[in-house]
Design a protein around this nucleic acid. Structure first.
Length: 809
DNA sequence: AGCGCGCTCCTTTTT
DNA sequence: GGAGCGCGCT
């Protein structure tokens, strides 16, 4: 097995040379490639190496260029080796991009950037190396959201908490929230602990952490939180890392949460060479724990920090920047930047009104076709929506118009049921103690094993503190199971054992193929008549193919949860459909922004839950959307929209009103739709009469809109109260991950319901009278470890487990 | 153990 | 409007 922590990687570097002579000579002898083409601010951001630096990089100002050039600068000046630079990103995509760009900047040296990665992958790497210090083994499993919820469900059931009233998802959300703030169960304030299940939240959180430890598992939040604990409890370990990381770089700093901030602060306390790059105006992840405050107070957290603003935009036209800048200027509590361009003004941002969402989609589709005829590539166009339910309408329209499109987002590859099943097989083979994996595949494909068998396994496993697989091994040798269940379970156990024995000798992707074949898993899908079965089989093949890129099974499993992504039809000329969130960091010639209506965008729910802060975040989202456009931004709103099945009349988003008239052009309704449009919005819209004059922007329509808005809000439409009353956070998490019903039938564990008294070895001897739950009274005739041979009064001679009998009878 | 009905929910998403 | 989930029936 290759060790990702090559010893060399961990030996302290020679003392900092402050720019070795050789390095300096090299730097002087040839022009520094990485400094070419940087503007003065960028150059300053690249060359200010010492001390804390905050680079406020507006949209399209060359942020990634600065980050990668800075790394090149550090290395070429000989200030640190590649292995002494920590650079963190949020997504694997960003990390990959940086690796590629560094590679092309500094060539072969770039290969050795072992500490470039996401917060989570770097956290995992550190944790694996010091697992024992936080009560884990180094082969710990990383649970994803799905596993997390399954585990919480078990705990809720064991604690007799009504899952209807207190859904596991809500608890998961709550726990994630605490972990985002680096709060261990002990640190959760008792007030906050009361938010769930009559004040039992804290206790449940604690139970959950105990279960994780028992399973040798961590969830995503732990990857950071356990790192912090590791550092705080082991100053020597922390000091090692502080010494090691001579330079630290952080991308998208505005998205960091409290835990990430603490982690960075601990590590940066050594050399203090921390460079954070971000844009407070693009902070759109507050709802999942990001603290804009981190970036706003950077210079207080890190006294003496150099703050550099990048405001020269290389992406968008003047009109687009003007519109975006005017909107974002309404936010309070920002550091303040004004983007400018030396390019042309370009086309004005257009705003158009549709009667309903169907017409909106049609207008967009027509526009796309018109642009296409003028020779524009579909690849350079994107539809950015606020919520994914808006996507369907566009897909339908594009299908009828035969416009090729791709939906970005959607369920991720490794969240798909068939992939998770396959991974569970690989996990149980590679880590026999992985109970969650065992439970998942235990009756998938169907083997006639259900809750009854799982309960029996647990009844043995828990008191004896052995994994379920081990319990199964023991139980199939006894008569505890009916003649129907035993062969099925035995078959599974023997298969797993055999597969495990092949790990060392069989190439891992071949082993995977063998497992999927022999377990009957591929057959299960081959027999499945549903429409998506073929796609699932393809996905399984894709999974096996992806495995080939990894060195071994363990290496693959480590990365799959954190890193794997689905590659979909890249390179083809298609229109992209995605959410505004998903569009961050991307750019397109033409951007369509539909659904600018009150309630949808800004989202009513965000407003209800987070008030002013929520509104500002929505406004940043609008800013992000507009600044994705290089040459054309086209906004739309509909006057009617079906929400939750009912038609509702809607009013234009306040963000439409916030657009500056001089950068905006109001589109006239064209052709057949015009009439409908007026019908739909009698009297309210400044788009009525459709005079695109700037003046129509200022007051009259605005006043009426305010009235309409007030009426809408006051009119007590169910939406507001309904929304407020609903518990939050229950939606979301990759809807499709649990696909078919089959995956649920793996059953659940009733935890803590121990059927038999606890087992101690050799409690019984020959001749003892015992009572068995199933077989009734009998006499022990032989003892073999924890297995008893009993002559039952009614059932005859059986071999049973000690933990299933009681003395007497 | 497996199917089918009916109830409830319904932003954004990474790791 | 539609999908998922749980329960209850067979």
């Amino acid at each position: 097995m290759s060790d990702p922590f090559a010893l060399d990687d961990w030996t302290p570097a020679p003392p900092p040379s402050g720019g070795g002579i050789a390095a300096r000579a090299m730097a002087a002898s040839r022009p520094a490639v990485h400094l070419q083409g940087l503007n003065p601010e960028q150059k300053r951001a690249v060359e200010t190496l010492d001390g804390p630096v905050l680079v406020l990089a507006g949209a399209g100002t060359g942020k990634t260029k600065v980050l990668t050039s800075r790394i090149a600068e550090i290395i070429s000046k000989g200030r640190a080796r590649a292995s002494e630079i920590l650079s963190v990103t949020f997504t694997n995509k960003a990390a990959r991009e940086m690796k590629e760009r560094i590679g092309s900047l500094i060539g072969a040296v770039g290969e050795g950037m072992p500490w470039l990665g996401t917060f989570h992958s770097i956290g995992a790497k550190i944790l694996r190396h010091h697992a024992e210090l936080v009560g884990l083994r180094s082969d710990f499993t990383i649970l994803d959201t799905d596993d997390q919820i399954r585990l919480l469900k078990q705990i809720l059931q064991a604690e007799d908490i009504d899952e209807k009233r207190w859904p596991a998802r809500l608890l998961a959300f709550q726990i994630d929230g605490w972990k985002n703030r680096a709060l261990t169960p002990e640190k959760v304030s008792s007030g906050e602990g009361h938010v769930f299940a009559e004040g039992r939240a804290r206790e449940l959180y604690k139970l959950y952490q105990e279960r994780l430890k028992a399973l040798n598992a961590v969830d995503f939040g732990d990857l950071l939180m356990e790192n912090i604990r590791l550092f705080q409890e082991n100053p020597d370990v922390l000091a090692d890392f502080q010494r090691r990381f001579r330079f630290m770089l952080v991308d998208e700093y505005q998205d960091t949460n409290v835990a990430q901030y603490l982690w960075l602060r601990l590590l940066a306390a050594g050399h203090r060479n921390l460079c954070c790059v971000g844009d407070d105006d693009q902070s759109i992840y507050g709802w999942r724990g990001a603290e804009v405050d981190n970036i706003l107070r950077f210079d207080k957290d890190f006294p003496g920090a150099t703050v550099i603003r990048l405001e020269r935009n290389y992406r968008s036209t003047g009109h687009i920047l003007g519109a975006a800048g005017h909107i974002i200027a309404r936010n309070e509590g920002r550091l303040g930047k004004t983007l400018f361009t030396e390019g042309d003004e370009g086309e004005k941002v257009s705003v158009a009104c549709a009667w309903d969402s169907e017409e909106e989609a049609r207008m967009v589709a027509d526009e796309i076709e018109a642009l296409q005829h003028k020779g524009h590539a579909l690849q350079e166009m994107a539809i950015l929506v606020r919520a994914s339910f808006q996507m369907r309408e566009f897909e339908e329209r594009f299908i009828t118009n035969a416009i090729p499109y791709r939906v970005i987002g959607g369920p991720r590859f490794y969240e798909r049921a068939e992939i998770r099943d396959a991974l569970a097989y690989l996990r149980i083979v590679s880590q026999p103690a992985d109970d969650l994996a065992f439970e998942r595949i235990f009756n998938t494909p169907k083997r006639g094993l259900g809750d009854a068998v799982l309960n029996a396994l647990n009844a043995y496993a828990r008191p004896n503190r052995v994994p379920l697989l081990q319990a199964a091994r023991v139980l199939v040798e006894s008569d505890e199971l009916s003649s129907r269940h035993r062969p099925a379970l035995r078959g599974l156990v023997e298969n797993i054992t055999r597969w495990a024995s092949l790990i060392e000798t069989t190439p891992h992707h071949e082993l995977a193929e063998m497992i999927l074949e022999e377990s009957g898993y591929t057959d299960m899908w081959k027999k499945d008549r549903s429409a998506d079965a073929a796609g699932r089989l393809d996905n399984l093949k894709e999974l096996v193919r992806a495995m080939e890129e990894f060195e071994n099974l363990a290496g693959f499993l480590e990365h799959v949860g954190l890193v794997m992504e689905k590659s979909q039809g890249e390179g083809e000329d298609r229109v992209s459909i995605m959410t505004l969130h998903g569009a961050k960091g991307l750019e397109f010639e033409t951007v369509f922004l539909p659904g600018w209506e009150e309630g949808l965008f800004p989202s009513q729910r965000t407003l209800d839950e987070q008030g002013r802060a929520g509104l500002e975040e929505e406004r940043r989202l609008a800013y992000v959307g507009l600044t994705r456009a290089k040459r054309r931004a086209k906004l739309y709103f509909a006057t009617n929209r079906r929400i939750h099945g009912l038609w509702q009349s809607t009013i234009p988003s306040r963000f439409v009103d916030e657009l500056p008239a001089q950068h905006v052009e109001v589109m006239e309704a064209s052709g057949a739709y015009g009439n409908m449009q007026r019908l739909g919005y009698a009297g309210g819209s400044r788009f009525e009469g459709a005079a695109p004059a700037a003046s129509s922007y200022q007051t009259p329509g605005w006043q009426r809109m305010q009235t309409a808005r007030a009426q809408n809000a006051g009119g007590g439409q169910a939406s507001a109260s309904q929304t407020a009353g609903r518990s939050f956070g229950s939606g979301g998490f990759g809807g499709g991950s649990f696909g078919g019903g089959y995956s649920r039938s793996t059953g659940r564990t009733i935890e803590g319901r121990v059927l038999a008294s606890s087992a101690q070895s050799s409690r019984y001897k020959s001749g003892d009278r015992v009572f068995h739950i199933k077989f009734g009274p009998g006499s022990v005739t032989a003892v073999d470890g924890n297995k008893l041979t009993v002559e039952f009064d009614k059932a005859g001679q059986k071999m049973v487990l000690e933990s299933f009998v009681q003395a007497g009878g």
